[in-house]
Design a protein around this nucleic acid. Structure first.
Lengths: 151, 151
DNA sequence: ATAATTGCTATAGTTACTATAGCTTCAAGG
DNA sequence: CCTTGAAGCTATAGTAACTATAGCAATTAT
């Protein structure tokens, strides 16, 4: 029987995340100690590893929920599994395309900076100039670009 | 004088976003009509265009706040502007690297899927097998990969 | 037995918005 | 002048996937 802390260490997850997965129905509610603390088995550890691995590969939680569901039905055809994974792949591809376009623009901007005064700064100029602003606006594509959280 | 709706259309933004930027201190509070509705000038329109363009390029709001601040001091050297832009570029670069690594893994998984039963599915196998799970875990790099919101 | 650590629940914060509810104001037509 | 429908107002909650905190209870080590 594993405490939540031990399980968390094994999966390189943190404790709150495991409780969060339980709330979201991704991890089953484990049994409890007499005092009410969660006690896990190796089955739980496997399931958590599956979830974490899928997360690292960019699967969103609803997709993982679906995969876990499918994994429990070994005799079904795996077309659905393939579709879920392919969707994630398509998503990742789209993100790469967009980011590479951003990178191009940014590199151009930064390269043109002559380190003078703000008044002459190409970066500020480009941002101010809304005639340029069409260069990237791919209609309905407004992805959020977030700085990564440092854990 | 522009109403918030007209301003929004010009900047291809939506109305709530403009009010949100005002709350965040990115847009100055405009004057109001007798009935209390916001009335904007072309100065506001320029500022909003600047913000939107920077957002499209992946600048987070705090960075945009800094740029707006710097843009108001034309005689300062632009080194700080350059640094902000370079940071965003570095961030975009890091995201691309990570996503390309994800893409590789996903492609391998999807290619190996033989469309059989779930029990034999390579995708499920790879996800279940935690000996593979080290392949991507780049220590403290745990970026969130989110599906883009459809507007 | 006691102290340090870990666990518990519930709640709020993160990013950059988006969406709703319930109300008020505005602009155009008759 | 009056009505009507669209647009605007504030305040609040929701999104994704966690992370962090507060205030308390259980467990473990000494």
């Amino acid at each position: 029987m594993l405490s939540i802390g031990v399980l968390a260490k094994r999966a390189a997850t943190n404790v709150q995340t495991i409780r969060f997965y339980e709330l979201q129905g991704l991890m089953p509610s484990p049994s409890r100690s007499d005092g009410g603390q969660r006690r896990y088995t190796l089955v739980h550890a496997d399931r958590l590893a599956f979830i974490r691995h899928a997360r690292e590969l960019g699967f969103p939680l609803p997709a993982i929920r679906e995969l876990l569901h499918l994994a429990d039905k070994p005799d079904q055809p795996c077309a659905q599994v393939d579709r879920v994974a392919s969707d994630v792949l398509a998503d990742v591809d789209a993100k790469i395309v967009r980011l590479e376009s951003l990178r191009g623009e940014l590199q151009r901007m930064v390269r043109q900076c002559r380190r003078g005064r703000v008044a002459d700064c190409r970066i500020i100029h480009v941002l101010k100039d809304h005639t340029h602003s069409s260069c990237l606006s791919t209609e309905h594509n407004q992805d959020q670009i977030v700085s990564k959280p440092v854990r």
